[in-house]
Amino acid sequence: MNELPGGTRLRVAPKVVLHDHLDGGLRPESILQLADDCGHRLPADTADELASWFRDSADSGSLERYLETFEHTVAVMQTPEGLERVARECVIDLAEDGVAYAEVRFAPEQHLERGLSLDRVVEHVLEGFRAGESAVAAASGRRIRVGCLLTAMRHAARSREIAELAVRFRDRGVVGFDIAGAEAGNPPSRHLDAFEYTRAANAHFTIHAGEAFGLPSIHEAVAFCGTDRLGHGVRIVDDITVHSDGTATLGLLANYVRDKRIPLELCPSSNVQTGAVRTIEEHPFDLLARLRFRVTVNTDNRLMSDTTMTREMTRLVGAFGYGWSDLERFTINAMKSAFLPFDQRLELIDDVIKPGYAVLLG
């Protein structure tokens, strides 16, 4: 089959997303309604205008400016009703995009302004996820599974508390722990006690690293903190030298990341928006894929990047000419890297992903 993947066939292809922020994927119309309910003032009055505002504000080329857009989404996620609605709609939207498994992350510490406790915040989000899964099954008979990652903000001092929260809820839908926020000035090694606690509890964690700050952030996340995955990790390319004949030499850190099969949660559109790379065509995704790093495709923030998994894959197809077998490999990479027990990962690969791509491959 010579056709490039795209259109409806690509939308229904089974997908796996490991890096998707709950507060970065709200529906604009839902933000308007929730903001009206809680009295929060927004920068636009219609869903279309609001969507454009988020997209344009996030296109600054600065990670710090990009993160400012979350003030409005987080503001409408402070009540049980707001949290459950946003979580439910997230699952439904992902399922409509062909996602079979997702790990969706959020920072519970940012949702306490209306008096909710950390535990109650997590309970309401998990309830929303389960309601979304049930709604998808009732409407289409399809199954989507969503796990939750609890994120600590790296500029704050609650990472150990959030790590304990993640472990406390790991049998109720939370699959791992994460830290996020501006990398510069906030190295992951400041949160060693949280990572040591997580490892001691035999729990999984990922670290936002190598998006804006480069190799030192990746080195700390891997060497000092022992991360299972790298959130973004795109700047690992700085430790790779490409020669004029097309061959590449890997530095010690890049070799270690590849040898250890540490997954890279790459988010192409978001990486362009935050200035980590200039264009999709210049994104090191293809170089890393050809060098057999464990690359995965992710959305990061669907609202701010005006994206979906289908759009991310479409952009990669357009930039690098990928076929169905390439997209299947990236999807299996993601499923192998998920924070699920091995048998459950294997079941989704064998029963959902491979059969789905077999049809597309003809």
Rank of each mutant, 00 (worst) to 15 (best):
M1H: 06
N2T: 11
T8N: 13
A13H: 02
P14K: 02
V16K: 02
D20S: 10
G24K: 06
G24A: 06
G25A: 06
L26R: 10
L26T: 13
D36K: 13
D37M: 05
L42D: 04
D45N: 08
E49V: 01
A51F: 09
F54M: 07
S60I: 04
S62M: 12
L63A: 00
L63S: 02
E64K: 07
L67V: 05
T69C: 09
F70K: 00
E71Q: 15
H72P: 05
M77G: 12
Q78V: 01
V86D: 09
A87Q: 08
R88W: 13
D97V: 02
G98N: 09
A102S: 08
V104A: 08
R105A: 11
H111P: 12
L112P: 07
S117W: 10
V121K: 03
E123G: 04
H124P: 04
E133M: 09
E133S: 03
V146C: 03
V146K: 05
C148L: 09
L150V: 04
L150D: 05
A152M: 08
R154Q: 04
H155C: 14
H155A: 15
A157W: 05
R158T: 13
R158D: 14
R158G: 06
A163D: 02
V167Q: 07
R168N: 13
F169M: 11
G176W: 01
D178S: 14
A180Y: 06
A182I: 15
A184N: 12
A184H: 13
N186L: 04
P188E: 02
R190C: 12
L192A: 12
F195A: 13
E196P: 02
I207A: 12
A209W: 10
L215W: 10
S217K: 08
H219K: 15
A221I: 12
F224I: 14
T227K: 01
L230N: 01
H232P: 11
V234S: 00
V234L: 00
V234Y: 00
V237K: 01
D238M: 06
T247H: 00
T247P: 00
L250K: 04
L252F: 10
N255T: 10
R258T: 07
D259Y: 13
D259G: 15
K260R: 15
P263G: 07
P268Y: 02
S269A: 09
A276C: 11
E282S: 14
H283R: 04
R290Y: 09
L291S: 01
R294S: 06
V295P: 03
T299P: 03
N301G: 00
R302M: 09
M309V: 06
R311Q: 05
M313P: 06
L316T: 06
L316E: 11
F320C: 02
G321H: 07
E328G: 02
A334R: 10
S337P: 05
S337Q: 09
F339L: 05
Q344M: 11
L348R: 15
D351N: 14
V352K: 12
K354M: 03
G356A: 14
V359L: 13
L361H: 09
L361Y: 08
